[in-house]
């Protein structure tokens, strides 16, 4: 469960940035489409770790962010749905999203020099204490 490792990082982060506070109104986490995180597993993992650490979060909110790419060579923009990705490659990118540069090129000019403009992976955007 790779999601468990990310969940530990999220809980450690919440603790660190709040100087050890134990009660939170809301925590918002963005989930980039490219990393194809299993939302339910991540939610379960975060809740288990929060419980073990005695931390209460009233609302754990996930926001999905579509993956968008922009070619640095020709400027073309495209999204994940424009790419045919088999399960094996999807799994490799799940662990290291930058591996997308290994398996894909700009659909217009063929350059691998493209940018992940949005939707790369997990990102904590909000930590609101009670």
């Amino acid at each position: 469960m790779h999601e468990w490792a990310l969940a530990e990082a999220i809980v450690d982060y919440i603790t660190k940035v709040s100087s050890g506070k134990k009660r939170f109104k809301r925590v918002t986490v963005k989930l980039g489409e490219l990393q194809s995180i299993d939302e339910e597993i991540l939610r379960f993992s975060i809740n288990e770790i929060l419980k073990a650490d005695g931390i209460h979060v009233k609302e754990l909110r996930f926001e999905k962010v579509p993956a968008i790419f922009r070619c640095r060579n020709c400027g073309y923009e495209w999204s994940l749905k424009d790419m045919e990705m088999d399960e094996e490659i999807k799994e490799l990118i799940h662990f290291v999203p930058e591996a997308v540069h290994t398996y894909f090129k700009c659909p217009k000019c063929g350059s691998r020099d493209f940018e992940i403009v949005g939707g790369r992976g997990v990102y904590v955007v909000e930590v609101i204490p009670e």
């Binding site: 990310l6 530990e8 990082a9 450690d12 660190k16 909000e126």
Partner: peptide, 20 residues
């Protein structure tokens, strides 16, 4: 609207777990 009060300079949550 509620405001997030903890938005530190380093926003990458992954750094929080590396020491562990």
């Amino acid at each position: 609207m509620s405001k997030a009060i903890f938005m530190p300079k380093e926003k990458d949550f992954r750094l929080a777990v590396i020491d562990r």
